[in-house]
């Protein structure tokens, strides 16, 4: 795969680098891990295969051989050979054809999986780009024009799908894998969240306000987190937290009183009170928010958060079994 134009921030990601937080090393990985797993599934890859994460302005790229790809996430003006590039499904791209992602028309980030997965070295068990440390991914950095990335051999399943598309002179398969429909999706504009360990540190009105108010995403947003603006969230009394672990989805509140929702490239520990934690299934929402977008938090219990988590996994497992039967 060759990068003709890099886009704004195109990086190699997998499901992250767990196991190293004790050393202060961030987990990172595709910001919406479920979206990444869905596109990997479409091209017969393992969940953890390395793929591209694309942000806001997408890359232009070509392949040396006929290839099976799949993309999903934000609404990009993605094209192949000038024609719209179908999303959420396996698509055939011929050698030399230009795949271009253009601009995100809605949302911010998308994920592009290529059959076989991207062949970059494992660093601490992961292929995720760890930009701040300059390691992982492709040379530890976002992609630039001219980069050439090797790919692993596609699975026999992917080869069969590609062969079938080629012989039928078809661009894409007819089935789709749409992660946003799986499990028990939240209502539009709402994310579900659990109370965090320091929820009780906040004034009762602040706790109520957090779960009642409409929150607006600010410009302060990156792979580490999204800062929201809304009502102030004062503590009951001034209290310093002893630094402890954080997690993706944790809503921490610095002294400014404006919450930050942490995303996978967060640090391993934090020193701000943890008011709430967004459920895994709804975290992807924050990877797509643009400044000015709004969201409400709906309180849920751990039992129902697990119910939501398991429902989505069950649906993905079902799709995996269904797709496996397509070839063979």
């Amino acid at each position: 795969m060759r990068i003709r134009k890099p886009g704004l921030l195109t990086t190699v990601q997998d499901l992250g680098r767990p196991g190293y937080q004790q050393y202060g090393i961030v987990v990172g990985g595709a910001l919406d891990s479920f979206a990444a797993r869905a596109v990997n599934l479409c091209v017969g890859n393992d969940d953890n295969a390395a793929l591209l994460e694309i942000a806001q302005i997408g890359p232009d790229l070509t392949f040396e051989q006929d290839t099976l790809i799949a993309w999903g996430g934000a609404d990009f003006d993605a094209r192949v050979g000038g024609q719209p590039l179908p999303r959420d499904r396996a698509v055939r791209v011929a050698a030399g054809e230009v795949v271009s992602f253009g601009l995100a028309r809605g949302g911010l980030r998308a994920w592009l999986a290529i059959a076989g997965g991207i062949d970059v070295p494992l660093v601490m068990g992961s292929r995720t780009t760890y930009r701040r440390a300059g390691i992982g991914g492709h040379e530890g950095r976002p992609l630039v024009a001219g980069d050439a990335l090797k790919l692993f051999e596609p699975t026999p399943w992917a080869k069969q799908i590609l062969a079938a598309l080629t012989s039928g002179q078809k661009r894409a398969v007819t089935w789709t894998v749409r992660p946003e429909t799986m499990g028990k999706p939240a209502r539009p504009g709402v994310v579900r969240a659990l109370r965090g360990p320091e929820c009780d540190w906040f004034a009762k009105e602040a706790q109520r306000a957090f779960f009642a108010a409409e929150w607006t995403a600010t410009k302060e947003a990156d792979r580490m987190g999204v800062r929201l603006s809304g009502p102030e969230l004062p503590l009951l009394k001034p209290q310093e937290m002893i630094s402890s672990s954080v997690n993706s989805g944790v809503v921490q509140v610095p002294p400014s009183g404006q919450p930050i929702v942490l995303l996978p490239s967060r640090q391993s520990v934090g020193g701000y009170p943890r008011l709430a934690a967004v459920v895994s299934a709804d975290l992807g929402r924050f990877t797509q928010m643009r400044p000015g977008d709004t969201v409400r938090f709906e309180e849920t219990t751990l039992a129902s958060a697990h119910d939501i988590f398991l429902a989505r996994e069950r649906d993905l497992a079902r799709v995996r079994m269904g797709l496996a039967r397509l070839a063979g």
Partner: peptide, 29 residues
Amino acid sequence: SELVPAYTTVTLFYDPWAAVQAGAPAQGI
């Protein structure tokens, strides 16, 4: 998947799906 020590805490990261596969009751993981 991971244990992270801090000043007064150890945080344990787990996969609810894997927990159920390992025998956890879905309602009380």
